[in-house]
Design a protein around this nucleic acid. Structure first.
Lengths: 349, 349
DNA sequence: CGCTCGAATGTTAGCGTTGTCATTTTTAAA
DNA sequence: TTTAAAAATGACAACGCTAACATTCGAGCG
């Protein structure tokens, strides 16, 4: 059987393609070389105006979307920033990540975030998974990490910010505030208001080291004043209103009673407020209440809630700023940025 | 000047490398070819036990982490799933995304999520940015999209789920519930309880089409019963407790008063509850209140809140299930999964 | 008017993996 | 045993882009 001499002169291994237009397609249509298109996209100033117009036109006509995988492979780095938080459902971290994403998004970086559920071994796994993407930077939460984290991030060699805490030794940089100091400021406020029998109520103190540090701060300052906490309750689950209410009820039943309660979270404090409404306990006359977070409802509930206001968005913004400047090759300083945490005094304490 | 004949026989173009161990390094150490390592990682059953042990050992010793950029480029697809929600700070979407991430994470996929801030043009941009990563699947929110979205996703050719709504024509698949029906169930409940003068209060109804559909459902059912809403208030900002309180105060002042208020969000309803506590308005005796979301506090506030319970986590789980089965090459059905939305009747209405 | 120098553009060769096809080894059937 | 079929493994090129190096061109200068 005679073969048509014109058909496939070379077997030409069949290949898959994404199907989309490539940079070469754009270059061909614009009558330039691929590298010029690449340059225009990454550093517009390096391409002459005439070519720039032609290339942009070609991009538009082909609906060209760059393949960042290919770019990341070629440059041995990507425009991905990996973020690991305990839980994205936590309003505090969500606010920081949101700000972080916005800042990085403006600069063309995508943020990959994942939740460790307060499990340090899981965090190790997540960090390792992030590294598979050759991220340009890494954002972790706090200083408590899994056993392999140090080795993993050392190998990664990317700028890292540990956020939401400053009291510790960072791998690289840190942005946050001192939770122990914040806790102490709560205790001082209660003592100044004449409170002498304070209960401390927190959630997941064994895993949430920052909440734990705040509670410890409260207790330390109370002890220093010779008025140690009359009760300390550690709830086993993440903060929720119902547990806050029942823990508060438990604290009220402490022998000798209490005249104040400091919570590791506004959500728990809200539960206490509802419990008081139910029982007819007067706030702050009978019991003073202090929360943490300055969540939306804190200013509007009855009575309004005295609470600590963490710099949620600011943490995200500052983290992005530090990482971007490091990515841009600036000052390899190792800053620890303490943004502070103010006590907002309202009706409840 | 005589050149040393031994020095660089080939100029050998200098190249950048990520510095990490590569698959070839692992292969060399294990005494196999690179493709066998690749196979072990992607389909362990296709490699014999002897080699598998040797290769795993080499991976361990070198601390090898696969370069997913290279893999993504070679395979013309990635293990990334793109998600676009209006706001990750919204507790509803955060819950769905969290569940979604968990399900995909188990299968080795990373989730890239981004917030459009209820801006459809921005959503277009974000979808396009996602495509640059050659995602394996796309998750969008609702059916309202920007002008270029349809063209963009058509070119993408990946499975897509539009979540949190089912009342519309999906690009591909949809998982959620019928917001209009949910709103109607609220109105029926209030009517059944003898309420005749209902106010409808929502936030960002112009942009949040789902909240808008719920409010419309309430109004339609009230009209059908011959008891049209006595007031409709559309707040310009995202739901927050303060605005809920002031909008409720405004509704109370409607000529002839009101005996019920339906809110597009529990947060707004909580504001109303606080406002009632402040003014001494009795719930539900004077005014009945219904929210949406069944947020944490709904079961615990005083009075407890009657509200709609959306299947937050379920939406994420089901979305992941559909997409993964499609990725696995199964049934190219175009399902629309209606998970329903129950009314949880408590004290407030 | 030739020369240097810098800006603009092009050429080449990978980046680290996987799809395709080829080859070798093992297993099962005859 | 022989042989075909199946399983395991390998060789090679290609995915789409960018770093490094090479070349061209025109402005500015003596």
């Amino acid at each position: 059987m005679a073969r048509n001499p014109q058909e496939d002169p070379k077997p030409a291994r069949a290949r898959r393609r994404a199907g989309r237009a490539t940079m070469s397609d754009v270059a061909r249509l614009a009558g330039v070389s691929a590298i010029t298109v690449s340059r225009l996209l990454r550093d517009p100033a390096s391409v002459s105006g005439t070519l720039a117009v032609r290339i942009r036109d070609a991009i538009e006509r082909l609906g060209y979307v760059p393949n960042l995988m290919a770019g990341g492979l070629a440059a041995a780095k990507s425009r991905i920033v990996g973020v690991v938080v305990p839980s994205i459902r936590n309003a505090f971290f969500a606010a920081s990540v949101d700000a972080l994403s916005a800042r990085f998004g403006e600069r063309g970086y995508a943020v990959l975030d994942s939740s460790s559920d307060y499990d340090l071994r899981r965090e190790d796994t997540l960090i390792e998974a992030m590294l598979a993407w050759n991220p340009a930077a890494l954002v972790l939460t706090g200083f408590a990490h899994g056993p392999r984290a140090a080795a993993i991030v050392a190998r990664a060699g990317v700028p890292i910010v540990e956020m939401w805490d400053v009291a510790g030794r960072p791998f690289d940089m840190a942005v946050g505030f001192d939770h122990n100091a914040a806790g102490r400021s709560v205790a001082r406020h209660l003592l100044a208001r004449g409170r002498r029998r304070v209960a401390v109520i927190g959630a997941m103190l064994g895993k949430d080291t920052r909440a734990s540090a705040r509670c410890a701060g409260v207790r330390e300052e109370l002890e220093r004043a010779g008025r140690p906490a009359v009760a300390t309750i550690d709830l086993p689950r993440a903060s929720n209103v119902g547990d806050g209410a029942s823990a508060f009820a438990e604290a009220l039943a402490a022998p000798g009673g209490i005249d104040a309660a400091a919570f590791s979270n506004d959500v728990l404090a809200l539960g206490a407020i509802f419990e008081c409404q139910k029982r007819g306990v007067r706030i702050p006359d009978d019991v003073a209440i202090v929360g943490f977070g300055d969540l939306d409802f804190a200013a509007h509930c009855r009575p309004s809630l005295t609470t600590l206001r963490p710099p949620r968005e600011q943490i995200g913004n500052e983290t992005a700023r530090l990482l971007l400047s490091r990515i841009d090759g600036q000052t390899p300083e190792r800053p620890v940025v303490d943004l502070g945490c103010d006590l907002v005094v309202r009706e409840s304490a």
